[in-house]
Design a protein around this nucleic acid. Structure first.
Length: 278
DNA sequence: GCTTGCGCCTGAATGC
DNA sequence: TGCATTCAGGCGCAAG
């Protein structure tokens, strides 16, 4: 699934292939893809069409295209979403949800098998879309405030992993990066955030940032001219994972078998020796 | 206000 | 063989 580094790669791709182009027409193939655009399909298509893309932005895993009408086209890729640049005559993908005809003869296609992704038009007159104002800065953002984030984490009583996944506290961290950062920092996923020291949290954020930067360096180099995002897969999957998906495998630090727990309707992978519960 | 549980969705993998 | 069930997880809603 697209992690934050992949979303940033997509944004850069949009900068190259969509910026300064006009959206000539819009076709919605699955209304679920624009379920958050409350005025509906027809309004979406007619309001987006005719506008030029003047800037691209990202916050956490949200993208938005700034249009010359000052509206913002907000996009989230969800679990399986891709943005592809294809020529007009290229065969439509099976899971194509929204197709936008661009003025340069190409199409911007939103393809999403599992339809967790979505897009909508924010009509607030430019600037940051208010609909995503609750999304915190991610660790790669220029204005990410480390000290304030540490303080915010320390006042939460939930388990640290739930806090890491809470986009209002810190954005861009998914299940995989959370497990890997917790493993690297030797912290149990269920330990209450308020019991962690500032130093421990700083280490956690440092680890997650390191992983994101590595994936970003990788993703940035495997970029095809006609593909904004090649396959929606994380560059992180190419690297060896220390915890995520490693159930039963020996921990690479202490050889204790990695354990898997049910957590928030998903899985948590952790080393029962290195990441002792509090 | 804060914390917690879960529904949404598809297709691959697994179970009977 | 074939049908049913489980699993994956980002996000936001709603209940506690």
């Amino acid at each position: 699934m697209p992690e934050l580094p992949e979303v940033e790669v997509v944004r850069r791709g949009l900068d190259t292939h969509v910026l300064e182009r006009t959206v000539e027409s819009v076709e919605v193939f699955n209304p679920r893809a624009i379920r958050k655009h409350l005025p509906g399909e027809k309004d979406f298509a007619t309001t987006v069409a005719g506008n030029k893309v003047v800037a691209t932005h990202r916050r956490g895993k949200y993208l938005w295209l700034e249009l010359d009408s000052q509206d913002g086209l907000v996009i989230h890729l969800g679990m399986s979403g891709q943005l592809l640049i294809q020529s007009n005559d290229a065969q439509l993908e099976k899971h194509a949800r929204v197709v936008m005809q661009l003025s340069d003869g190409n199409q911007l296609r939103f393809v999403d098998q599992r339809t967790f992704g979505h897009m909508f038009l924010s009509r607030d007159g430019g600037g940051e879309p208010p609909e995503i104002a609750h999304i915190a800065r991610d660790p790669l953002a220029d204005d990410f405030d480390l000290a304030a984030t540490i303080k915010d984490i320390q006042r939460r009583r939930s388990g640290i992993k739930r806090v890491l996944l809470d986009q209002r506290v810190i954005s861009g961290i998914g299940n995989i990066y959370a497990d890997e950062a917790l493993w690297a920092a030797k912290i149990n996923y269920d330990q209450s955030a308020e019991t962690l020291s500032a130093q421990q949290i700083r280490l956690l954020i440092k680890e997650v940032t390191k992983v994101m930067n590595r994936a970003l360096d990788q993703g940035g180099t495997s970029f095809d001219a006609l593909y904004v995002n090649v396959n929606g897969e994380s560059g992180y999957f190419d690297r060896s994972l220390n915890a995520y998906g490693q159930e039963g495998e020996p921990c690479s630090r202490c050889w204790t078998p990695i354990r898997r727990d049910k957590f928030m309707g998903r899985s948590s992978f952790w080393c029962p020796n290195c990441q002792l519960p509090d």
